[in-house]
Design a protein around this nucleic acid. Structure first.
Lengths: 140, 140
DNA sequence: GTGAGTGCAAAATGTTTGCACACAT
DNA sequence: ATGTGTGCAAACATTTTGCACTCAC
């Protein structure tokens, strides 16, 4: 068992949840992938998992901080949390939908400083940017 | 007619939309208020406007950049766009719920630069921070 | 063995669409 | 006058819930 799976199992167990087949399947669908919508996950697991269980699984994943939600236009998507991949934000193209992850330590520090300057202690933050990617911006 | 209403009318007309009663009502519901969910707007206007028209109105408002969407926890809400109030982000306290607006030009520039560095053209961006405010952070 | 987790079916909620009528320009 | 915008009703999509059965521990 590698570190990632280990972390997955530990995250569930320390909060008293069991490791089940549906939970593993959903986790695998999310591992190393772009943020996905719930309906995408429902569709991909349709033959193996009931819709309701997908919703219930994601609820558990959020509580155990296995996943986090990401804004995407009017909807949101789900991805593995910062425990499983390094902290980042996204640029989303309004035209072709491509998602470009961005990682920038200086930005993180800057955000942190703004908050501490107000005596505010950050638990989490989310930055979502949308517009047009290099390819699509020529036509918009 | 004051400047705000003027801007509202102009925003619609320049894109070829008419100013109608339902659109004015929804606009008034949003003016000078905290971000609201669609269902709140539907409920508040129930006696005067059909659900479908609320959705259609918000679609038009978005296209004409009268409103913008704000993620609020895991849901979305609608507020008047930066044309009607100065661009800002929020620090939200998980304990007492206080919302501290933040405005920081250097931050905005920094975000802009990250995007342009990737050839990305920003249409909008959203930064939501949550944690504990100065008062509440002593107890957490 | 036992309680947590699941599938299934149905309900509740949220969003979109077609169409005939009403209203803004 | 005319074409956009609206209400209404129905379709469609998404999310939640109750219940009996199953599986992880």
């Amino acid at each position: 068992m590698n570190t990632i799976d280990d972390l997955f199992v530990t995250s569930l167990k320390t909060k008293g949840y069991s490791v089940t087949k549906p939970r593993q399947i959903i986790f695998d669908l999310l591992d190393n992938k772009e943020p996905q919508s719930i309906s995408e996950l429902v569709r991909k697991s349709k033959s193996q998992i009931d819709r309701a269980s997908v919703y219930r699984t994601l609820e558990v994943f959020e509580e155990t901080e296995i996943t986090q939600r990401v804004s995407n236009g009017w909807k949101y998507k789900v991805e593995l949390s910062d425990k499983f991949q390094s902290h980042h934000h996204h640029l989303t193209c309004r035209n072709c939908g491509i998602v470009i992850p961005i990682e920038d330590d200086k930005l993180e520090d800057y955000i942190e400083n703004i908050a501490t300057g107000q005596g505010f202690k950050i638990v989490s933050h989310q930055l979502e940017i949308d517009g047009y990617c290099a390819k699509c911006s020529t036509t918009h």
